[in-house]
């Protein structure tokens, strides 16, 4: 299906992030790659829960003309959105930890290159 373009966008994001993680040596670039992979996973969850022509699963200020009879078939799925919410906060926490570790590594070794850090180890 050519209409699966959002899924391919997800795979493209994950590929870009994995390339940065696997083939770059700078720790900051690796952190950016991890963040891009996280964005891809979040987009994947949201894409899984999308329903064609759906509105947000919130009953406050519904669009005018929405009747109760058509409601379960007209809203996007709430569970993937909730999981994405959890995943975003965990991503922020992990990113903060990664960056502070990178700062400490730079302070101790004087470099951010992953291979040089490995070589300097006693």
């Amino acid at each position: 299906m050519i209409y699966n373009l959002p899924f391919m966008t997800v795979i493209a994001l994950i590929a870009i992030g994995m390339y940065a993680i696997l083939f770059r040596r700078n720790l900051i670039k690796i952190a950016i790659g991890i963040t891009i992979v996280e964005s891809g996973v979040n987009l994947f969850l949201i894409t899984l829960g999308y329903r064609k022509g759906g509105i947000a699963p919130i009953f406050t200020n519904l669009p005018p003309g929405t009747t109760p009879e058509e409601i379960p078939g007209k809203m996007v799925l709430p569970v993937p959105q909730a999981l994405t919410l959890t995943s975003i906060v965990i991503g922020v926490a992990v990113l903060a930890l990664i960056l502070s570790l990178a700062i400490q590594i730079y302070r101790n070794y004087g470099t951010l290159n992953a291979e040089k850090v490995r070589r300097l180890k006693e």
């Binding site: 699966n4 795979i11 699963p57 009747t67």
Partner: peptide, 28 residues
């Protein structure tokens, strides 16, 4: 992975029994 994204189920048409149960039904 790209091939599996091409072959995955249709975009915009999810299996939704659990989520329909959560969204609920209003008796007007």
């Amino acid at each position: 992975m790209f091939y599996s994204a091409y072959e995955i189920r249709d975009f915009g048409n999810p299996p939704s029994q659990m989520d329909d149960r959560i969204i609920g039904k209003y008796n007007s």
